[in-house]
Structure formats: structure tokens, C-alpha cells
Design a protein around this nucleic acid. Structure first.
Lengths: 130, 130
DNA sequence: CTTCTTGCAAATGATTTGCACGCTA
DNA sequence: TAGCGTGCAAATCATTTGCAAGAAG
């Protein structure tokens, strides 16, 4: 599985990003195969599926529990350093008979790049306005 | 907007669930119209879009900040009582130049019903096994 | 007449699946 | 030969969009 090899990108890739990367080495690989293997790899616990509030699923190179921040402008996803929240979530058969399995926290924001672009735009508008 | 009226279902409906409900009163309404109006309503802040780690978007009848628990078996979504986590998330231009906007917490679990069904199944299997 | 809102159907985008083929045991 | 993993294309599913027609001002 060269896919795993690709996970060393240390980013949070979408299936098609993985596809593009892998295709540099295996030009004939199909998108379907990428999807199938990403699924297998995450079932094996070698990568982590990220189903965030986004349209595209992403895959994380590390399977350790941690949280993410996503740019609402460009969609970029990065890790964010927030303490583990297990203690906050109802334990075991806690809440009204639910069996708790896991939790996900996603922080939304605007990344430095998009922030910067927004500022430049504002700058430009102001300038042309004068 | 009879859609809003429908939101009084006090549940976390998907677009097609809303569609089904509204159609009981307006049999000719189209799914596209439902989508368009759900979008308008959430832009107006009258309902809240829920982009959880699910394939379908849901709409919440209340716009107050709170968190949800989703059943990984049947997809049911309910509110969950967890304190507000704003304080945990990096403030303002906190993390590496990101501008923080919001955050979402989703707890995953198995709802009482699915739990119960799973148990019945296990029971049955054990019984037939004897 | 102009504008806004619809129904309808087709388009989109991400993901999944059916199928036939080649590789390996 | 039996079975698995693949490329390819078609199928799904949720959501969005283009367009012509009707309602409202």
C-alpha cells in the first residue's frame, strides 16, 4: 500500500488529493481504488477518517485523538492544541441511555493566508476609494 | 414560510424530512424550494444549519449554541447537555494567526433504541445457539 | 412591466459499486 | 482453477442550479 507511504505528507488529505499524490508514482491507479484502500486503511486503524462539517472526507496521518481547525474560506485543515475532552462527555451509558462511543471537536476559523488576503483586498478597496 | 412552522417538530431534521413534513400541507412544494428556503432561514438566523460528520445536513429549530449527540447506527441526532466550550478554544487571533470564528462538538454514540435492538439480537443469537 | 418565488429537471460533486480482467496461490 | 485487487464506467445520494411560468406589487 503505497497510499500509506503518501500519508507521510503530514497533512489532512482528501481522497482526490491522495489520488493526485499517488498517481505521481502509479499513473494508472484509479480513484475508486484509492477510495477502497483509504477505507481499508482506516478500518485497520492505520489512518483516521475525518468526517468534519465539510463536504469532503479527509484522512489523517495520525490516529491519535486530537482536534482540528478548519478554514471556512479555503477548507484547509490543521491540528489544534486543545486538551482532551473525554472528561466533559457523559461517560459510559450516561446520557438518557445512550452508549457513548466518541466525540469530535472542530474549530472553525480563517487561516492566516485567507486572513491576509482579506486584508489586502480591504487595503486595495480603500486605496482605490481615495 | 410554513417551513418555520414545521421546525416546531423540535427535532433535528434533514432537508428531505422537512420536505416530507411540509408536503403534507403543500403537496406541490418541490425539494428545491425546501432547500432554498432552509438556506434563507438559516441565513436569517431563524434556524441553525448543522453540518455534523454525517452525509446529510440537518437543521436545528433553535439557534442557541449547544452540542449534539448522534447515533452511529440510525443517524438520530439529539441535544446533549455539555457546558459551553468557548473558553477552551483559542481566543481571537489565537492559534498561529488563525482568526477563530466558532466551534462544533459532536458526540457519537448508540441511542437507546439501537442499543436495545442490538441486545435483543444478541439475546436471539444466544438463544438459537443453545 | 418588473421582480420575486416557484416547480421541474438537469447538473454537480463526493463517494460507492458492478463488472470483467489479470495476477497469484 | 479459485479468488483477490484493480481499472473503468455507471450508479447513488445529497445538494445546487438554470430556466420558464405564475404571483405580487
Amino acid at each position: 500500500m503505497i497510499l500509506e507511504e503518501i500519508q507521510k505528507s503530514h497533512r489532512h488529505l482528501t481522497a482526490s488529493e491522495v489520488y493526485d499524490l499517488v498517481r505521481e508514482r502509479l499513473p494508472n491507479i484509479s480513484l475508486g481504488t484509492v477510495y477502497r484502500n483509504l477505507e481499508v486503511l482506516s478500518d485497520l486503524g492505520l489512518i483516521r477518517r475525518l468526517d468534519l462539517g465539510d463536504t469532503k472526507r479527509r484522512y489523517d496521518f495520525t490516529t491519535e485523538k486530537h482536534y482540528h481547525i478548519r478554514c471556512v474560506k479555503c477548507g484547509r485543515v490543521e491540528d489544534i492544541d486543545i486538551e482532551n475532552l473525554d472528561s466533559l462527555c457523559p461517560k459510559g451509558d450516561g446520557d438518557r441511555g445512550w452508549r457513548i462511543i466518541d466525540h469530535n471537536l472542530e474549530v472553525l476559523g480563517i487561516c492566516p493566508e485567507c486572513n491576509h488576503n482579506a486584508n489586502s483586498n480591504k487595503q486595495n478597496k480603500e486605496e482605490t476609494h481615495v
